[in-house]
Amino acid sequence: MSHHVTPLHLLPKGARATITGIASHSHFGELDAQVTLRLKELGFLPGAMLQVIGFGLFGADPVAVRINGTKFGLRRSEAAKILTTTHQA
């Protein structure tokens, strides 16, 4: 297992990873704390495992991931908040 931290939006398709933390992101301005909270409520918590299952049309945006058996579509800016370490295949 590598200990290199990668934000979710930079993971390749099919990658499995463990979340290490949720970072703040300037894109959401004063709503950032709310977005962090909502991500956590949906299960994006440190220690949770996820898998990248697909991308939208242009530039890997949005990203589809599976976490706890549920699939979510996230935009790049939301995905960038989610820090992960990848599992070696």
Partner: peptide
């Protein structure tokens, strides 16, 4: 400011 998408599939 941006609003999140967070779409459940």
């Amino acid at each position: 400011q941006g609003f999140p998408l967070l779409l459940e599939l």
